[in-house]
């Protein structure tokens, strides 16, 4: 078996204590939320830490609750918990459905939403959908709190804007009313998605008043394009004619890269296919 190097596990009882530990251990320490990404990298000796800080021991960090028209999900909530949460299924089925398709059932049982976002592996289903849904991330370092949008949290491949002693407390997702239509579709052959496409529309009858399309996994960060979003608004018939142009604008903004999940040209092509699928699914 591929053994892990020796490390010590720490169990903070609060976000402030975890932040304190991060400050104390510096580069020798890292937050541990589910291990589905981190432990793999450590097994392969790509990352080495002497101290892991188990954020799951912080009471309440895994809560999922509705508050003032928003859905709040703690950083340590597992994909499985989100997938099965009645509050999520009822109020934001697109999120439950996306979570039901993350990796495999075992990864969903131990992997967490916070871990997925903060590890910032570019092939992330949650990152793309949360960006499209206008989610915010609540970050905390000792006693200092700040709130950022997902595109300000994830800043590159495996890179975030988190400070050295800062951690993700939770995600807040606004619940738009009945006029919202949303879909998340993806293309995946192996363990990680080649492409994920999230589409969130605000509709009034046959008119699409607002649109947000985000493509994830094809490049280092999930991407949206104002031009594409503009082309996706208007009457349904008109938007249908503009879908390919919108996909082109989105592909240009995303600037797909070649990787093990597929070539850049292929991913550009897939954006067109999956934008269409997302559009049909969202309005079904």
């Amino acid at each position: 078996m591929m053994p892990l190097r020796r490390f010590a596990m720490h169990q903070p009882k609060s976000v402030a204590e975890a932040s304190q530990m991060l400050a104390e251990f510096g580069e020798k320490g890292r937050l541990y939320a589910g291990g589905t990404e981190l432990l793999l990298a450590m097994k392969h000796d790509l990352l080495r830490y002497e101290h892991l800080i188990d954020v799951k021991t912080i009471p309440g960090l895994n809560k999922i609750e509705l508050k003032n028209g928003t859905l709040n999900i703690g950083g340590a909530a597992t994909h499985r918990a989100i997938e099965h949460s009645p509050a999520v299924k009822e109020n934001l089925p697109v999120l439950a459905q996306m979570e039901n398709n993350v990796a495999n059932v075992r990864v969903r049982a131990s992997g967490t939403l916070g871990g997925n976002l903060c590890f910032a592996e570019p092939h992330s289903d949650p990152a793309a959908l949360l960006l499209a849904l206008g989610a915010k991330a609540h970050l905390q370092a000792k006693s200092v709190r700040r709130t950022v949008t997902i595109d300000k949290l994830i800043t590159g491949s495996y890179e975030t804007s988190l400070g050295a002693d800062e951690l993700l407390e939770g995600i807040e997702i606004p619940l738009a009313g009945k006029s919202q239509r949303a879909a998340y579709v993806k293309f995946q052959l192996k363990e990680r998605p080649t492409l994920g496409l999230a589409l969130v529309l605000d509709v009034d009858g046959d008119n699409i008043k607002k649109a947000k399309a985000v493509v994830g996994s094809v490049s280092p960060m999930p991407t949206e394009s104002d031009k594409a979003n503009g082309l996706l608004t208007g009457s349904r018939a008109q938007v249908e004619k503009q879908l390919l142009d919108a996909a082109g604008a989105l592909a240009q903004a995303a600037d797909p890269v070649d990787d093990l999940e597929g070539g850049a040209d292929y991913k550009r092509h897939l954006i067109g296919v999956f934008l269409k699928r997302a559009f049909i699914k969202a309005l079904a």
Partner: peptide, 14 residues
């Protein structure tokens, strides 16, 4: 583990 399937190869005994 508590009824949920996990990958024992990467799931810490802890």
């Amino acid at each position: 583990v508590d009824g949920a399937p996990v990958s024992a190869c990467t799931y810490l005994a802890y």
